[in-house]
């Protein structure tokens, strides 16, 4: 994944220029911060929280949609607590429990088993 540089001037001028429609503005914002995993609602929630923390009387929608707020948006983004990227990776668990199964004895009794007259299954640990 190509995450972004929030401090990149290119990224923020793109964001600032995207005032034609809400959909385009949010798409460009996602692209500029490299967070395709964040939907519009999540972005707005993050920005609203930051505006509250900063004590700015401005709505998140206005911040994103208005061309005049490009520099402010850049600053607000740099102060925003985004959630962690949602890019799951499979991590299978490996069992390290030692099996007491005797080798070479899958379908027959082991030597020990033959001597003792006990099938090899008896030597296996359950679970």
């Amino acid at each position: 994944m190509e995450l972004r540089s929030l401090t990149s001037q290119d990224g923020h001028s793109q964001t600032g220029a995207a005032a034609l429609s809400g959909e385009t503005a949010f798409d460009l914002l996602r692209a500029s911060i490299g967070r395709p995993d964040l939907d519009d609602a999540s972005l707005l929630a993050c920005l609203t929280e930051t505006l509250d923390v900063l004590g700015l009387e401005l709505s998140a929608e206005d911040l994103v949609l208005s061309e005049d707020n490009a520099q402010l948006l850049s600053t607000v983004l740099r102060c925003t607590a985004f959630p962690q990227p949602r890019f799951p990776m499979a991590m299978p668990d490996h069992s390290l429990n030692v099996s007491l199964t005797l080798p070479f004895a899958a379908k027959r009794t082991s030597t020990l088993g033959r001597i003792a007259g006990v099938p090899v299954r008896a030597f296996r640990r359950k679970g």
């Binding site: 995450l3 972004r4 929030l6 401090t7 911060i33 490299g34 967070r35 930051t50 923390v53 600053t75 983004l77 740099r78 102060c79 925003t80 607590a81 985004f82 959630p83 962690q84």
Partner: peptide
Amino acid sequence: AYRAALLKLEAGGRLYYR
């Protein structure tokens, strides 16, 4: 502390807390 560090460093999108 996370919020304070985020603002101080202006590290939005680079510093996460979970």
